[in-house]
Computed example of a mutant assay.
Amino acid sequence: MKIQLYVLRTVATRVLGAAVVLFSILQILDLLEVTTEILDRGLGTAGVLYYAALRSPRLVEQVAPIATLAGGLFAFSQLARESAIIAMRATGISAYRIVGMAMPVAFLVMALDFSCSQIIAPRTDPVLSAWWQATTPVADRKVPGPRSFRAGDDLVIADGASSDGRQLNVVRVYRRDKAGRLVERIEAPTATYGHGGGWTLNKPVIVRFNGEQVNVVPAAQMTWPSPLHRQDVQALFADSPVPSAATARRVLLNGGGDRPAAYYETQFLAAFAGPFAALVMLLLSAPVALANFRSGQGAVLLTGGLAAGLIFLVANGMLTALGEGGALSPLLAVWGGPVIFAALAVYALVVLEG
């Protein structure tokens, strides 16, 4: 039990230290770009801290896998240099069991990564976007262009939306029959999302096409039965939309989306596969524990582990991009990288153990 706590504490402290350093570097680089602008808006130090707090979940998401790799390499190399690995193996503890002792650290990082990317960030991103837009000087504000998207079977064009996603401005809804012919067009100055769900078109003008006949029917209000959710609107009108698993799932179930289905399928699967990058990184760092630093093998394995981790991130990003574009199966695009590199890491560990 003491050995397990020792290994766990050694790996956990190194991963935490790497995470703090990397997070601080990313936070500083991010603030260097916006601090002057925040101060020019008269928001002061409180504005800088508020921006940093809202950006933190996305930075944690970026830092998690690299911190696990760096911390794992530092921890296992220290255990190897101190001959702790040799002592543990002399008592009958295999290298696989030593790696298993460090696994709870990877699981904790995975849980933190998932929480930040799928629970916290989807809530802080709209708040940051609304705050940034509200504090932008009127002269510098850019009027966003109209956005077109699908909402169930309807094609929709809206010129803008409120920050909370409960209102669409200058809405045009196009409906088609099963053959793809336009049968109805609805134009309304605004569309509001009710607190109980569902949309209401205010002062709509309904134009129905029946062959060569065109019927125009104005109305005071009209219920718009649409699976579109207010969070879908926030994602569609965001400057850099990053759909969460919930948003991607709603789109796949006929919610509001402006990209191909393959993109949302990949994003949905990536939401659950992404945190496993931390586990892969820990496995890639594990072979260093069996290195002989006196013969120079340690430096080779340290460099190889770091290179393998970086290559994994690049390859995983490329496969995900191929999946989003529809050039590769979303399942293969999302899980191909983690499975391949995890298998390579386990193979290297087996060879060194043997």
Results as ranks from 00 to 15, higher is better:
residue 175 R to N: 04
residue 60 V to Y: 08
residue 106 A to P: 09
residue 352 L to D: 06
residue 311 I to D: 12
residue 125 D to C: 00
residue 256 G to T: 04
residue 335 W to L: 11
residue 8 L to G: 07
residue 256 G to Y: 00
residue 36 T to Y: 15
residue 121 A to R: 08
residue 331 L to D: 06
residue 349 L to H: 01
residue 24 S to D: 02
residue 293 F to Q: 05
residue 272 F to Q: 01
residue 213 Q to P: 06
residue 274 G to P: 01
residue 272 F to E: 03
residue 119 I to K: 03
residue 283 L to H: 02
residue 84 A to K: 08
residue 87 A to Q: 03
residue 59 L to D: 02
residue 7 V to L: 06
residue 174 Y to G: 01
residue 100 G to W: 10
residue 330 P to K: 04
residue 305 G to M: 02
residue 55 R to F: 03
residue 177 D to W: 01
residue 291 A to P: 08
residue 338 P to H: 05
residue 152 G to K: 00
residue 257 G to V: 04
residue 293 F to P: 10
residue 91 T to D: 12
residue 109 V to H: 00
residue 215 N to V: 02
residue 46 A to G: 15
residue 20 V to Q: 06
residue 56 S to R: 03
residue 230 R to N: 07
residue 25 I to M: 08
residue 354 G to M: 08
residue 178 K to Q: 14
residue 130 A to K: 01
residue 165 G to A: 08
residue 63 V to D: 05
residue 151 A to T: 14
residue 242 V to L: 06
residue 211 G to N: 13
residue 7 V to N: 03
residue 96 Y to P: 00
residue 216 V to E: 13
residue 309 G to P: 11
residue 317 G to L: 04
residue 158 A to Y: 02
residue 141 R to C: 01
residue 23 F to D: 04
residue 312 F to E: 12
residue 306 L to A: 15
residue 203 K to T: 09
residue 100 G to D: 05
residue 57 P to R: 15
residue 59 L to H: 10
residue 326 G to R: 06
residue 202 N to Q: 11
residue 269 L to A: 04
residue 280 V to Y: 01
residue 303 T to E: 01
residue 221 Q to N: 14
residue 58 R to Y: 13
residue 34 V to M: 04
residue 118 Q to R: 04
residue 16 L to P: 06
residue 92 G to E: 03
residue 336 G to Y: 08
residue 17 G to Y: 07
residue 137 P to E: 02
residue 170 V to G: 07
residue 285 S to A: 15
residue 229 H to T: 11
residue 279 L to Y: 15
residue 264 Y to S: 11
residue 255 G to R: 00
residue 213 Q to V: 04
residue 6 Y to Q: 12
residue 83 S to W: 15
residue 88 M to W: 07
residue 234 Q to T: 13
residue 42 G to N: 12
residue 330 P to V: 03
residue 217 V to N: 09
residue 293 F to R: 09
residue 313 L to R: 15
residue 152 G to H: 04
residue 219 A to T: 01
residue 64 A to H: 10
residue 302 L to N: 04
residue 203 K to S: 11
residue 42 G to S: 14
residue 19 A to E: 01
residue 348 A to W: 14
residue 39 L to A: 11
residue 190 T to C: 01
residue 91 T to A: 12
residue 85 I to G: 03
residue 164 D to G: 11
residue 178 K to N: 09
residue 178 K to W: 02
residue 5 L to Y: 13
residue 46 A to R: 14
residue 352 L to I: 12
residue 272 F to R: 02
residue 13 T to G: 13
residue 101 M to N: 09
residue 41 R to G: 14
residue 95 A to L: 11
residue 97 R to T: 12
residue 136 T to K: 11
residue 353 E to P: 00
residue 47 G to E: 11
residue 95 A to F: 08
residue 310 L to G: 04
residue 174 Y to F: 15
residue 289 A to G: 07
residue 13 T to E: 13
residue 281 M to V: 14
residue 10 T to W: 05
residue 320 T to V: 06
